[in-house]
Design a protein around this nucleic acid. Structure first.
Lengths: 157, 157
DNA sequence: TACAAATAGTATGTAATGCAAACTAACATA
DNA sequence: TATGTTAGTTTGCATTACATACTATTTGTA
C-alpha cells in the first residue's frame, strides 16, 4: 500500500513519517481536534457532566434559547434535543419556560446551579487549554488566532 | 455577570465581543475543534459509519492492533472496545485473529472491505478539510502546521 | 515446580446519546 | 374556515460507554 503525504490518516501513522512537522495540515488539524476534545471531555467529567450536557450548558450562558435553535446550534434532531434537555432539567441545571409570543415554543434557561456548573466547567476547559498553549509566544499566539479565524470563518454562532 | 476576555465560552458569546479576531486562543481552539469534528462526523455518516467506528478503522490502517492497545488509542475501557469491535466485525469490516505469542490476546485487522471503507472515509475527511484551509497561503500553512505541532507536542500515537 | 498475582479479553446490566417516524398543539395563510 | 406549516414530544431502536464480575492465560516468586 503506497501512501502519499496527506494519505496517512486521521489517526496515526507517525512511525511512517517521523516528526510531526512532516504531517499535512489536515492531519494536524485532526490531531489537534482529538487533543482539545479530550480536554473538553475530561473537564465535563470532572463536573459530573457528559460532554453533550456540558455543550448544552455552554450554549445557554448568554441567555435562554429555544429548542429548535438549540438543535441548530448543537446539530441535533429535535427529538434528540428533547431528550438531552429532559435529562439536564431533571438534574436541576436548566428550566423550560413557555414563550410568551408563541405558545408552542419553550425557552431553555440555566438555573442558578446550572450557571455555576457552566461557568466552572468553562473555566476548567480554558485553564487546561491555556496550559497546553502556555509555551507559545505572544506574537505566535496572535498569529495562530488569526490563522484559525481564517479557517472557521464568519461566526456560525 | 461581568466577563473577561477568555471568559466567554466554549460555545458562543460572539455578540458580546464582535469579530472572531477578538477571541482568546483557547476559545478559538474550541471552535476549530467543533468544526473539524463536524467534518469527521459527516464523512463517517456518508460511509455509513458512526464516528467511533470510523475512528476504529483509522487506527487499523497501519496494521493489526491488539484490543488493549486499541483501548489506549481510543481512550476506551476494555469492555467498550469489545462492544465496538463486535459491531464492526459483524459488519464485515474487521476480523479478530489470535496472537501467536499470547493466547489470551487478539489482533484486530481490517478486512479488504474494511480497508476500502477506511481509505475512502479518510480521503473524504482530508478533502473536506483541505477545502476549508484552501485559501491559506503556503507560508501560512507551514506556519500553522508548526504552531499546531508545538501544541500537540511529541507524538502520543 | 507450584501458587499467587497480574494481564487479555468477554459477559452483563445500566445510563446516555441520537435518529426516524408518528403524533399533538399552535400558528399562518389562502 | 380549511389547509399547511412549525414547535415540540413520544416511542422504539441501535450505538456508545462505563462498572463489575467473570474466564483463561501468563508472569513472578517462594
Amino acid at each position: 500500500m503506497t501512501r502519499t503525504n496527506t494519505d496517512q490518516a486521521t489517526g496515526l501513522a507517525s512511525a511512517a513519517t517521523g516528526a510531526v512537522g512532516q504531517l499535512g495540515l489536515a492531519v494536524s488539524l485532526v490531531r489537534l481536534t482529538h487533543l482539545v476534545q479530550r480536554v473538553f471531555d475530561d473537564a465535563s467529567r470532572h463536573h459530573d457532566l457528559t460532554p453533550q450536557q456540558a455543550q448544552l450548558l455552554c450554549r445557554l450562558v448568554d441567555g435562554p434559547v429555544g429548542m429548535t435553535e438549540l438543535g441548530r446550534m448543537l446539530h441535533l434532531e429535535k427529538s434528540s434535543v428533547t431528550g438531552l434537555v429532559d435529562r439536564v432539567e431533571l438534574r436541576g441545571l436548566i428550566t423550560r419556560a413557555r414563550s410568551t409570543e408563541d405558545r408552542r415554543a419553550w425557552y431553555v434557561a440555566l438555573t442558578e446551579q446550572g450557571e455555576r456548573v457552566a461557568v466552572d466547567t468553562h473555566h476548567e476547559v480554558i485553564a487546561q487549554l491555556e496550559k497546553l498553549v502556555g509555551d507559545i509566544s505572544t506574537s505566535d499566539r496572535e498569529r495562530l488566532i488569526s490563522l484559525i479565524a481564517g479557517i472557521i470563518g464568519p461566526q456560525p454562532s
